[in-house]
Structures are given as structure tokens and as C-alpha cells.
């Protein structure tokens, strides 16, 4: 079995989910055997060498002048297909981030492989892989098989996490030159803007979200202050996004982002079923709400029954004290 992990780059660095794809590939290897290889497109040597701390021993990087510092779904799908074909890959794993979500299905088509997205668990039965995947925004989870010989799947971020080992594996990096022309870049990227200093809810280890209980958009500064002390991203309920208090990119829930941070703090959010769907797979949940009967408390590990505007400044001040001491 030839198992490949696609290692996406965002900005000039490997995205953190690249390491998670390696972890998932090693899980597949432990279940059904085989060799693991990393596949990358236009990533510099220094970045690639970090994967050795995640146990990767072999990596192929596609390099071509046309690929330098750009991204185009059509061209990247073509390159990834060539990379995977050159290695006779049976199983291709991509992170379920924007690039993985659009490259995975395309490569599955050209590769004649079955595809399943947003996997949170991998098992095996009689040598066949079984994938666990949330559906209905996490209200249910399915166990499913792909009936094709070749398989492509994406993994949900923050699930297949691993710590970098002190010692690096001995990593062999090879270069691959794809067949590529200007015409393959059917979508031309004009620009990429990285939001500086602002964490994305879908990426952060800790998320602090606010809802109607904040009473007014300007009170979100209390959420931002708490988030800053914790190094957290700011999230929002649908109600406050629809009211125009916060941008849609911060919305957590069924028609926003579905997230699984280590710690989720819901402030002034009652916990509509759509919101719960987006955050109930968080590892630890804290709810702050003045209504002790709010549904959010049913999914909370820890709850504070109190008014958000009164609790937040005190909580932030206390956390600042404690966290800065240690």
C-alpha cells in the first residue's frame, strides 16, 4: 500500500494541517501497512525538513517556475495528480482546508479514486479502511467505506494532531518536475492577503465566541480582550452576524464554521441547535450565560451563570493575573 500525505502551504510556510496529514498517514500505515510519502508543491527545503520531526522519511516536492508563490486549483490538481501517479499512490490524504477541499475531489476524479471529506477517525476491518465523518454539521457521525481500490480523503483540522519529536527521522527529499504550461493555470490568483495578528476561528486552539447576550456590537471589545489574554480567536453566533455586529468569517455554527478547538468559550450565546452543531465537538466547552436554563449549558463542561457584561471584565482581569504569573 502506498500512502501519501499532501502537505499544503499557506503564505510561505507549511500549514499546520500538513503535519496532521502526516499523522493520519501513519495511522493508516499502522492499520493496513505500507509506505508513507509526503507530497508538496513549491515548498522550500527548510520548511520541508521540519516534517522529519513528525516521522516522515520520504518526501517528493514538485518544483516548476510557473508554480512559484501562486495557487490555482486547476494547475495544482494537475500537479498533484502527476505527483501521486508518479509514486503509484493508493491512498491520498489531504487536510480539509480550502485547498484540500477543492483539490481532493478533482484528483479523486482523475485518479479514479473514491472520495470522502472531513474524516475524524480511521479504523480498519478485514484490511478495509473505515472512515468516521460528521454529517449534518456534526449532529450525527457516519462510519463509511469507499468501495474503490484507490482512495482520497480529507481530514478535519485539529483532530489528527501530533507533537514534534525532539529527534528528526532521516528524511529523503526528492524533487519532481511536473509537465505544466501557462494554459493549465485556468484560475489566475491575483492576490493573497494574510490577515495579520488576527486568528481564524477555524484554526485557533482556543475560541471565545459572543452572542446576543453582549447586548451591543461595541461590547465585543470585552470578548476581544478575553481572547487576547488567552491567545484565542474571536467567534460569533449567527444572530450577531446577521445583525451586522460581526463579519461572517467569524460565524460558528451550521451555516458558518464547524470547529473543534481545545477550548471553546461561549459568552451570551443561548445555544440554538445550529450553533451547537458547529462547536459541540470542541474538546472543552465553557458557557457564560445569565439564563441558567439556556441549552448551551447542556453541552458545557463548565458554566458560569451570570451576565456577560459583568463577568467578562472580572474574568479577563483574573486570567491576566494568573497567566502572567506563570
Amino acid at each position: 500500500m502506498k500512502i501519501a500525505a499532501f502537505l499544503p502551504k499557506l503564505g510561505d510556510k507549511l500549514h499546520k494541517t500538513a503535519y496532521e496529514a502526516i499523522t493520519a498517514a501513519h495511522q493508516v500505515q499502522a492499520l493496513i501497512g505500507g509506505d508513507v510519502v509526503g507530497l508538496a508543491i513549491d515548498v522550500d527545503q527548510q520548511q520541508l525538513e521540519r516534517t522529519a520531526h513528525y516521522g516522515l522519511t520520504r518526501l517528493i516536492v514538485a518544483e516548476h517556475p510557473l508554480l512559484a508563490n501562486t495557487y490555482s486549483p486547476s494547475a495544482f490538481a494537475k500537479v498533484l495528480h502527476q505527483l501521486a501517479s508518479s509514486q503509484g499512490i493508493d491512498i491520498l490524504i489531504l487536510p480539509n482546508i480550502t485547498y484540500g477541499k477543492e483539490l481532493g475531489p478533482r484528483v479523486a476524479v482523475t485518479f479514479e479514486a473514491g472520495y470522502i471529506a472531513d474524516v475524524i477517525g480511521i479504523e480498519s476491518q478485514n484490511g478495509e479502511l473505515i472512515f468516521r465523518k460528521p454529517v449534518y454539521a456534526g449532529k450525527a457521525i457516519i462510519a463509511a467505506q469507499l468501495k474503490t481500490a484507490k482512495k482520497v480523503f480529507t481530514i478535519r483540522p485539529n483532530i489528527f494532531t501530533a507533537k514534534a519529536a525532539e529527534t528528526a527521522a532521516s528524511l529523503n527529499i526528492e524533487t519532481f518536475t511536473p509537465e505544466l504550461s501557462e494554459a493549465d493555470f485556468r484560475e489566475k490568483r491575483l492576490s493573497i492577503t494574510r490577515s495579520t495578528g488576527k486568528l481564524d476561528v477555524a484554526e485557533a486552539d482556543i475560541v471565545v465566541s459572543g452572542g446576543r447576550g453582549l447586548k451591543a456590537p461595541e461590547n465585543f471589545k470585552l470578548i476581544e480582550e478575553l481572547a487576547e489574554v488567552l491567545g484565542a480567536a474571536v467567534g460569533a453566533s449567527r444572530a450577531v452576524v446577521d445583525a451586522g455586529w460581526r463579519p461572517h468569517s467569524e460565524q460558528v455554527g451550521q451555516t458558518g464554521k464547524t470547529i473543534s478547538p481545545n477550548l471553546y468559550i461561549a459568552v451570551g450565546i443561548s445555544g440554538a441547535v445550529q450553533h451547537l452543531a458547529g462547536m459541540s465537538s470542541s474538546k472543552v466547552i465553557v458557557a457564560i450565560n445569565k439564563d441558567k436554563d439556556a441549552p448551551i449549558f447542556q453541552v458545557a463542561d463548565y458554566g458560569i451563570v451570570g451576565d456577560a457584561l459583568d463577568v467578562l471584565p472580572r474574568l479577563t482581569a483574573k486570567l491576566k493575573e494568573v497567566l502572567h504569573k506563570s
Partner: peptide
């Protein structure tokens, strides 16, 4: 032919600690 075969579906049951506190310091 379909590629995906669903074997089972379940409602996730995450054990939560449910420690509910007041709002005092």
C-alpha cells in the same frame, strides 16, 4: 455506481463535566 457505502450512523455522545458555577469572584 456509488463510491461511498455508509455502514452506520450514530449521534455523538460527548461526556461533559457539567460543572455549573455562579458569577462570584
Amino acid at each position: 455506481e456509488p463510491q461511498l457505502e455508509i455502514l452506520s450512523m450514530e449521534i455523538p455522545q460527548t461526556e461533559r463535566r457539567h460543572v455549573i458555577l455562579g458569577d462570584s469572584d
